[in-house]
Every structure is written in C-alpha cells, then in structure tokens.
C-alpha cells in the first residue's frame, strides 16, 4: 500500500504544470524515503529530477510498504489536479502492484471530498546516473528575476550565454536582429534573503544554453522564491527550485557549443 497525504494540493499542481509541456509521461518512483521522478525530454536536451521527501512537513501522512513505480501521463494528471481546490489536502493512493492511482481531495473544512482514479501506464524509461559533482559556480537569485531575464532575452535570440565571474553574472543574447545583455551584481545590502543575488565562484564559467528550455523551466517559478543555477564549463547546467517543506525540483540542460 502506498498513501501520501500532501497538505497543499497547490504544490503538486505547480510541479505538474511546470513539467507537463516538456515531459509527457513520467514514472513516479515511490519508496519509504519519499517520491522521486526523473524524466528526459524527447530530444535528449533537458532532464527533470523531482524529490519529495517523506519525512518533511509537507506530508501529513506517508506510507509506502514496498517500492512502486507509478507511470503517469502528466497531461492527464494536470487535468485531475485542476479538479482540486488550491487549499485542498490531496492524498495519493495505490496498491502494491498498482494499475490505478487514486487522488482524494479534501476541502479545508472537510465538507467536500472528491475522488478520482486514473489508469497507470507502463513507461519504459531508464534511469540515468547523475553524478554528484562540485560545480565551478553556483548562482542564487530571486526566481522571478531569472524568469524575467529568460523571457526578456528570448525576444532577440535562441541562445543565452551565461557568464559567471567574481563580480556577478552576465546573461547575453545575440540574434540576427539585435543583441541584449543583463548584468546582475552580487547584492549585499538587500534586506530579504530571497531578494539577494549571490555567486559562489570557484572558477569562472562562460556557457551557452537554449532559451526555449530555460523559459520552459521557469514555469516552476511559483514553487520557490529563489532559484539556484549550478554551472561547470562544458557540462549541463542545473536549475534548482527548492520546494519548501518537501524537497526540490531540478532541471538539467545540456550546453550549446561553438563548432
């Protein structure tokens, strides 16, 4: 038996909304330690990795008697989650050898209980080994700022060059019709921690990435006040949105290089 009771259905809604356009079907791997999801987009350019820990406060109850994999069409899951109120408590339930995933939505005042079943899918996807590495540079910034930068620069070109150096981080685009650049300096005088821009730098990095994917990742902006960008030269960037009281959602994006 698997049963996970999440206090805020809005968190699950936001996660699925941020994934469903790039990742059509995905396996939720459930174990006693929590729920993980790893999926790669069809063009092998982007990968998402979700971790929801069972011992965090976001779950009111969590039970997973044996490890199970729930293969779900994310478009369908998005439709089901739209049937939940934002303040509803959502319970996910499945048997040990499941064909069906059940969603139960309890309204805050317990006056309305709704239940939906969806059929599970066999999804043949191999898990990739993502090495734990120390990155040359980790940028922490407000998530809405990163969203704005990606949106602004995507007006002029397909690729952004991210340049991390000791003064801060530069985002540059060069298209056929024009170019743009946004410089962010490290902030030290901002009151709120979530408004700060910090750059942990071991080595400077200059790397280009497809804006189409970065813009898609920023659909997760409402999950978190801050976003962390981890970069190393000639390796995929990690765009991480911490999820309070649950864990995190990470996106990996392969770089573009000059031939």
């Amino acid at each position: 038996m698997f049963e996970a009771k999440m206090l805020q259905s809005s968190v699950l809604k936001k996660i699925i909304e941020s994934l469903k356009d790039l990742f059509a079907d995905a396996n939720f791997d459930c174990s006693s330690s929590g729920i993980t999801l790893q999926d790669m987009d069809s063009s092998h350019v982007a990968l998402c990795y979700l971790k929801l820990r069972s011992d965090e406060e976001g779950f009111e109850d969590y039970r997973c008697d044996r490890n199970i994999t729930l293969g779900v069409n994310l478009g369908l899951m998005s439709k089901i989650l739209k049937c939940a109120g934002n303040d509803d408590v959502v319970t996910l339930r499945a048997e040990d050898e499941p064909n069906i995933l059940t969603f139960i939505f309890d309204s805050k005042n317990s006056e309305r209980v709704s239940k939906y079943d969806i059929k599970l899918m066999e999804i043949d996807s191999e898990l990739l080994g993502i090495p734990d590495t120390d990155y040359s540079c980790v940028v922490k910034m407000p998530s809405h700022e990163f969203q704005r930068i990606c949106s602004n620069l995507s007006q002029l070109g397909d690729s952004v060059t991210i340049d991390c150096h000791k003064e801060g981080v530069d985002f540059k685009v060069a298209g056929e019709q024009g170019s743009g650049a946004i410089k962010l300096k490290q902030t030290t005088s901002v009151d709120k921690e979530e408004d700060q821009v910090t750059v942990q730098l071991n080595e400077p990095v200059t790397q280009s990435f497809a804006l189409k994917f970065l813009c898609a990742f920023t659909k997760a902006t409402s999950l978190s006040d801050t976003v962390n960008l981890s970069l190393t030269q000639d390796t995929p960037v990690v765009v991480e949105y911490p999820i309070a009281q649950h864990g995190y959602l990470r996106f990996y994006l392969a770089p573009k290089i000059e031939e």
Binding site: M40, L47, P236, L253, A254, K256, I257, E258
Partner: peptide
Amino acid sequence: QLTQLDLLKYFKE
C-alpha cells in the same frame, strides 16, 4: 553557429 549537445553524452553510464 552553436550546436546543441545531447544530455546522454553526460549521464549515460
């Protein structure tokens, strides 16, 4: 001209 690299190049074991 930039070329998009494949993620499998990094993560495939």
